[in-house]
Design a protein around this nucleic acid. Structure first.
Lengths: 198, 198, 198, 198
DNA sequence: CATGAATGAGTGTTCATTCAT
DNA sequence: GATGAATGAACACTCATTCAT
């Protein structure tokens, strides 16, 4: 699945130099923030000199952009797959919630955090570019919530609900411990109660 | 009301030099982030030279700490007042939501965003100090949610619900436009539907 | 004379920090070229740290611009004074030659060299600005040469002659030794033979 | 003519890799200066990677040295040919002027500018080497001017006049437009009036 | 209290050069 | 020969902080 996305060029091979750099960047950007992470930190993390970074990316901001872009591409692809397997409106919303939680809390979670919290570090034209990708991703959400609303399961406008959920889910990165008592699936079910009337 | 808090020393007089600095700092930290805000920016905002800042605060981080501390003190006080006027569990939760939204979105509320998003810019010992104040604030929330739960109005554990709400409400700073169609009170009602079964 | 120009704000007081910096910059830019001169060189030359340079000028290029601007302002003023004391066309041209040689070979000579040879290191908008000052300076030359031409003393178009002279005079910095056999006045007389038929 | 010089090894075949590199280097060094021209620029210009340059030349400075050396060799050869065809002292000086202008302003002449303006970018020992070649070139000038002086056509010492001419002619690169109203031959005639009494 | 010149460690970035493939 | 990833020293510039005035 992931292999296929790599082959299609959607995401960079995590074994390649560029791929390892993106992974390290996502981790460090999340841990310390984009501004506080120096290119020397980045380079040290993958064992090269700081100057060598610029052989792969033109600037530090370019690395941030790449992290964000790959993340959103990957998660859009994963959400599409999950949606296909869902049966009903409730199932679709739950699938999206679980997907987003996985991307926030799982392996690619660092990058997802970056996407959410380092937005203003991007230059306007980079923002525009990411924004287009983001719109595609968000449309999957809005469609699923609209369907649930049509079925009478949602109390408020989908676009408002989606924004509440964006905040609620992204914030989990600040408190949820994957190795604690609550499984990710349970967390997803709890989150579902915010959105859907039982 | 505010006057009393000033008199009690809970918050700094916004007319004083220190007070104007804190307000400016809250605004700039929110707009551009703590790292991207220079002490020159701060000084220019209140019409002094950057070197003169250090007569008021020992360091830039100290300003951040003060902004956070005052914000949380102020909001704790405001929430206490609002809670007193609420009648029932639903009214209490709504009051808290409205209060937190006001502090996030309102005129003096830039600092709340800072509290949420600039956390890691604080040194560990400053974090400890703020954390204690934060615990008091959070306890007001947990108490109100527990009351609502006891009344059968809440589906999930208060501490989980509170965390979902923290994320959902703080995120509004990224999308809600105070001068748009939706009033802040409407927004609060919508948010209430996340928490309380109708 | 110089004092008056300082008082008028035409040039920076060479005793001030900014003034000493400009003098050092002119010297180093001439010796090693603008590109090869680092801001650390500049700072070391006047005994401060490199970061402190930017307290006085916003960028390295700004220093170059200032050197050029002051030089041209100073030399325009000096030429005006010299012209007033000249009697006839021949005397005016000789006065201009002597003036330009003095500015190239004398105390402000380093800056004059910079003005001539580091032109392309300026950004386009800085070039525009200097160009306007330069036009005023050049007009003094063109007027004097036109007068000589009207008197039948000059064989070719003033604007062509002026350009030949610009090159011939500025190049003296690469070979003329002020402490050698030839005085500057003799050099000026020789240069005059290029321009004026005897 | 040129073919013969190539066959004699005086200059590098402009069709070869080294030859194309030298031509590109001359052009770029003139356009943007030696310091501002990167080896990547150079490599891109002839369609190879920057690392591959170093199979042809040991260093960037080595390329500059080669450009200068070939230029001076070529121009010395061209001047010798032109001198043979000149009849009298006036004709010889005019031939030299035309030759030098062609080398400064003509198609293959970018390198001449480099020779004049990038001198200080050379290391001292490279300077020594070029200097010897330059002396040969300059002797052709001094001989012709001495001849003209002996014929009473020149007012000042040949070595001084030559230096004025060096400056005047090299400076043309900064203002003369080959596609403007004035032909290069006219420009040469004008320049001659600087040197020779009519 | 305020100024503003100065600090000095640190930043992102550049670039000639090297070298294993 | 050519590639292209990597080097590492150098660069212009930033900025929180200090301190004599």
């Amino acid at each position: 699945m992931i292999e296929q996305l790599i082959a299609e060029g959607v995401i960079t091979d995590p074994g390649s130099a560029r791929g390892r750099l993106l992974a390290a960047a996502a981790r460090l950007f999340k841990q310390q923030g984009y501004e506080r992470t120096t290119v020397r930190d980045l380079a040290a993390e993958i064992g090269i000199q700081s100057g060598s970074l610029f052989h792969h990316y033109r600037s530090k901001e370019d690395i941030l952009r790449a992290v964000m872009e790959e993340t959103i591409q990957l998660n859009t692809a994963l959400m599409r797959i999950a949606l296909k397997q869902a049966q009903d409106p409730r199932g679709k919303v739950l699938a999206l919630i679980r997907c987003e939680l996985q991307s926030i809390l799982g392996e690619t979670g660092e990058a997802m955090s970056v996407l959410v919290y380092e937005w203003r570090s991007l230059k306007p034209d980079s923002q525009q570019h990411i924004l287009k990708l983001r719109d595609i991703y968000e449309q999957l959400w809005l469609d699923a919530l609209a369907e649930a609303r049509a079925a009478g399961m949602v109390a408020i406008e989908p676009f408002i609900l989606r924004r509440f959920l964006t905040g609620a889910l992204s914030w989990t990165t600040n408190w949820y411990k994957p190795d604690g008592d609550m499984t990710l699936d349970e967390l997803a079910e709890y989150a579902l109660t915010l959105a859907i009337k039982q």
